Amino acid sequence: SSADSFAMIRGGHIALSILGGMQVSEKGDLANWMVPGKVVKGMGGAMDLVAGVKRVVVVMDHVEKSGAPKLLKACTLPLTGAGVVDLLITDLGVFEVGRGKSPLKLTALASGVTLDEIKAKTEAEFEVGL
């Protein structure tokens, strides 16, 4: 049940949380629960998921539909958690995130993606560890 699952999460019994993101900052901040101007009934359980686990993996598109980066110096959307992301997987690559420490480290490129493409579509600072 939902009550049991959140008791497990809030009690620190879950080791890994994998969730989607709208934005991630270079310090591992996550924004994934609200877009300004949209009606939201509540923040849901994402804040519990990032606060009550040992490791957080975020999976998301690298850029918005407009082409704007989603991997930013600082999130512009309301935060779900500050410095909570350990690993970020996008459609372009994989980044290790140091939970509040900069810089990010690019550890893998998606097939057919170049380092120049990642640089052009990423606002956050990162080092290359391929």
Rank of each mutant, 00 (worst) to 15 (best):
A3T: 08
S5Y: 09
I9M: 10
H13Q: 14
A15Q: 13
S17F: 01
L19D: 04
G20R: 05
V24C: 14
V24Q: 06
G28I: 13
G28Y: 13
G28V: 14
D29C: 06
A31H: 08
W33G: 14
W33I: 02
V35A: 10
P36W: 12
P36E: 10
G37Q: 10
G37P: 07
K38M: 12
K38T: 15
V40A: 09
V40R: 03
V40I: 15
V40F: 07
K41P: 06
K41F: 09
G42Q: 00
D48L: 05
D48Y: 06
L49K: 01
L49I: 07
G52R: 03
V53G: 08
V58N: 01
V59R: 11
M60R: 02
V63A: 05
K65W: 05
S66T: 13
A68K: 09
P69L: 02
P69E: 02
K70W: 08
L71E: 01
K73H: 05
K73N: 15
C75K: 11
T76C: 04
T76E: 13
L77N: 06
G81S: 11
A82K: 03
V84S: 06
V85R: 10
L87M: 14
L88A: 03
I89K: 04
D91P: 01
G98K: 15
R99F: 11
R99L: 13
G100Q: 12
G100W: 15
G100R: 14
K101R: 15
L104Y: 11
L106T: 05
T114K: 00
E117K: 03
I118T: 00
I118G: 02
I118M: 00
K119I: 00
A120G: 01
A120H: 00
T122L: 03
E123P: 02
A124P: 05
A124D: 00
E125N: 03
F126N: 08
F126P: 02
F126R: 10
E127F: 04
E127C: 07
V128K: 07
